[in-house]
Write a protein that binds this DNA or RNA. Structure first.
Lengths: 241, 241
DNA sequence: ATTATCTATAGATCTATAGATAATGC
DNA sequence: ATTATCTATAGATCTATAGATAATGC
C-alpha cells in the first residue's frame, strides 16, 4: 500500500517544554522587520505560556516581560488578551489544517474508490505528527497549546472554525472505505482518534512516569509508528453486525 | 465471555452542562449538617465552574456568589484556591479509582491466566462510564473537570496520585492478555485509550456539531457500546511482527 | 510623517486575613 | 463554649487607554 507522506521526518529531536528564546534579536532593522519581530516573539512567548497555564493563567505582563517589551505593546499589536489568544491559535492551526487537507486530497486522488481506513488515517495523523517533529520547539509548544484548548468549551468552538473542513474530508474518505457503516460509527471512531491525538499533543509527561521512563511524551515518532494502525483496526472492529 | 459490570446503568439521562442547584436547602439544621451542606455546595459549584473555566478562570467570589455565601467562607473551609481545586478533584477521583480497581480485581479473579484485552478494557472503561451515567449532573460536571485537568501539566501530576494504581493494574492484566507484546506497545495503547476517554469526558459538544447532530457529547451510552471493542482491536493490531 | 515603543495612570478585581456577630451545643 | 458566617480591609495585581517619546521613512 502506498501511503502518503508530505513531510520527511527529520531525525527525532529531543523536545522539552521550552520558553522561546527571546534574547537573540532585538537588533533594529527596518520598521517592517521590527514589527514582524515583535509580533512573532509575542506570539511565541504567549503560545508557550498559554500552553502551560491556559488563557486565564497568563497575564499580558507575563508575556511582555518575557519578550522584554512593555505591556502596552501587546495591546498595540493584538488589541486585547482574547485576540492574542486567537492569533496564537490561528497562526499554526491554518498550517496544520492545510497540510492535512493536501495530504488527504492527494491520497484521495491516488486511491479513488478504494481507499483504506489506515491509508486515510495516515494522511490525517502522520502528516500532522510530522509537522511537530519537523517544526521544533515552537511547534511542540503549539501542540500542547492546541491540545489544552481542545478540551475546553470555547476551545472546541475554535477547533470547529479551523478544522471542520479537513475532518469532514477525512470522514468522507472513511465512509467510502467503510460503505456499510453508519455515520454514527464513523463519527464516534473519529472521536476516539482525535482524543488519542490530543492526548499525544498535550505532552503532559504522564506516560513517561506511568511507564517508568519506557515511553516519552515527546516521542511523536513512537506514536506515529502505532497510531494509524491501531485506530484503523478499531474502526474495522465496529463492523455492523 | 462474561464481562464485569459493577454498575447497572440507569436509563440514559439527558445531560447538559448545568450549574448545580443551590437554591434548595440553606435550611438550618445541626451545625454538622450546616457544615456538610456548605462544603458540598461549594464543591459542587466549584466543580462546575472549574470544568468550564479552569483553575485561573474562576474566582472565589464567583463560587461564593453562586452558592450564596460570603467569599471568606470558602477560605474558612478550604484554606485557599489551590486546596479547593484539589478537594474538587479528590472527592470523586477516589470513587472512580476504587470502582475500577474493584472491577479489575473481580475480572482478574474470574479469568485468571486467560484474560482478554476487551474484557480488561470493559472493566476499566465501562465501569467508569457507568459512574457518570448513574451519577447525574454533578458527576458529569466532574467528568468535564477531570478531562480538562488531565491535559494540563499540573493536572497530569494529580492524575498520577489518584490513578496510577488502577492504571498499572489494567496494564498488568493487558500484559497477561498479550504476553508477546513489549511494555512500550502496552503503554502506548493505554495512552490512546485514555486520550479517547478524556475526550469523551470533556463533552465539549464538538462531535455534536461535527456530525450535524447525529452524535451527542453527552451520550456516554453510545461511547460505551463502541469504546472497549474499538480499543481492544487497536491493541491486537500492534502484534509484534 | 509615520509608526514602534514607553510613561503614567484609572478603574476594577482578586486573594487572604483579622476580627466581629450570630447561631447551635451541652 | 463552640463554630458557622459576615464585615472591613490591606495589599497586590491586572487590563486597557491616553498621551508622550524616539526611532525609521521618504
Amino acid at each position: 500500500m502506498e501511503l502518503p507522506r508530505l513531510w520527511v521526518p527529520t531525525p527525532a529531536a529531543k523536545f522539552e517544554d521550552a520558553m522561546p528564546d527571546t534574547k537573540k534579536k532585538r537588533v533594529v532593522r527596518s520598521k517592517a522587520d521590527q514589527r514582524a519581530d515583535s509580533i512573532e516573539q509575542i506570539l511565541d512567548v504567549a503560545e508557550y505560556l498559554f500552553s502551560r497555564n491556559g488563557l486565564h493563567g497568563v497575564t499580558l505582563r507575563d508575556v511582555a516581560k518575557q519578550v522584554g517589551i512593555h505591556t502596552t505593546l501587546v495591546h498595540y499589536y493584538f488589541k486585547d488578551k482574547q485576540h492574542l489568544f486567537e492569533s496564537v491559535f490561528a497562526r499554526r492551526a491554518g498550517v496544520s489544517s492545510a497540510a492535512r487537507m493536501t495530504a488527504l486530497e492527494k491520497y484521495e486522488a491516488e486511491t479513488g474508490d478504494s481507499p483504506t481506513v489506515e491509508g486515510a488515517l495516515r494522511a490525517f495523523l502522520d502528516t500532522d505528527l510530522d509537522l511537530y517533529v519537523a517544526g521544533g520547539e515552537n511547534w511542540m509548544n503549539y501542540a500542547a497549546f492546541g491540545a489544552r484548548v481542545s478540551n475546553t468549551p470555547e476551545g472546541a468552538a475554535l477547533m470547529d472554525v479551523y478544522f471542520d473542513p479537513v475532518v469532514l474530508k477525512l470522514v468522507g474518505i472513511l465512509k467510502r472505505a467503510l460503505p456499510t457503516y453508519s455515520d454514527e460509527d464513523i463519527f464516534w471512531g473519529y472521536h476516539f482518534v482525535t482524543g488519542a491525538l490530543m492526548n499525544t499533543l498535550a505532552r503532559t509527561g504522564r506516560i513517561d512516569r506511568l511507564s517508568g521512563g519506557l515511553c516519552h511524551s515527546d516521542d511523536f515518532t513512537a506514536v506515529r509508528e502505532r497510531m494509524a494502525r491501531f485506530m484503523a483496526a478499531g474502526f474495522l472492529s465496529l463492523k455492523p453486525r
